[in-house]
Simulated scan of single mutants.
Amino acid sequence: MAEVKPTRTARRGRIFPEIQWTEEQKAQREARREKFYQRCKPIFDKVKSELIETHYNWYIAVEPDSGEYFIDKDLEVVSLQCREKHPSKIHYAFRINETGVCGTI
């Protein structure tokens, strides 16, 4: 007797409706992101010169309120380390190199 397999139909499209942002909301979000970046960048700049020699192209996650930072080769690991220590805080991740970014556009 042949086994009958149920057929599944694949879902198409998004489960959730798209968020419609106004230009003002986009500008406010970008301003908040830039302000947060400006709080994290000095901490990164302070330790970058000593870390660039030993941990080149690793990742660093900075939590600006405490001034703490976490370093690892893997971006996921460094983010988890920061979230474990500061679960309710947002962190910013940099790449330990001359520019602090992962690549170019």
Rank of each mutant, 00 (worst) to 15 (best):
M1K: 13
M1P: 09
M1S: 14
K5V: 14
K5M: 07
T7W: 08
T7G: 08
T7V: 14
A10W: 07
R11S: 08
R11Y: 09
R12S: 13
R12E: 13
R14S: 14
R14C: 06
I15Y: 12
I15S: 08
F16W: 10
P17F: 06
P17L: 07
P17Y: 08
E18R: 14
E18H: 12
E18V: 13
I19L: 11
I19C: 05
Q20F: 10
Q20V: 15
T22F: 03
E23P: 09
E23V: 12
E23T: 15
E24Y: 03
Q25K: 13
Q25A: 12
K26Q: 13
K26V: 11
E30Y: 06
E30I: 08
A31N: 09
A31I: 05
A31F: 05
A31Y: 04
A31M: 11
A31R: 09
E34V: 07
F36K: 06
Y37E: 07
Y37R: 03
Q38G: 10
Q38S: 04
Q38K: 12
R39G: 02
K41V: 11
K41I: 10
P42G: 03
P42S: 01
D45W: 00
K46N: 07
V47S: 01
V47L: 01
S49H: 05
S49N: 10
E50K: 08
L51H: 06
E53G: 05
E53A: 10
T54C: 04
H55L: 02
H55Y: 13
Y56R: 10
N57Y: 12
N57G: 00
Y59I: 07
A61K: 00
A61Y: 01
A61S: 12
V62N: 01
V62H: 03
P64K: 02
P64S: 02
P64T: 01
D65L: 06
S66L: 02
G67L: 00
Y69D: 00
F70I: 03
F70H: 02
F70N: 00
D74A: 06
L75I: 15
L75M: 13
L75D: 15
E76P: 01
V77N: 11
S79K: 15
L80S: 11
L80I: 09
L80M: 09
Q81S: 09
C82G: 10
E84S: 07
K85D: 08
K85P: 03
K85H: 15
H86F: 15
H86P: 04
P87I: 10
S88L: 15
K89S: 13
I90G: 03
H91N: 09
Y92H: 08
A93T: 15
A93K: 05
A93D: 15
A93G: 08
F94I: 03
F94G: 04
F94S: 00
R95E: 03
R95D: 02
I96K: 00
N97Q: 05
N97A: 03
E98F: 00
E98P: 00
T99M: 02
T99W: 06
G100K: 11
V101W: 06
G103K: 06
G103L: 09
T104W: 12
I105Y: 08
I105T: 13
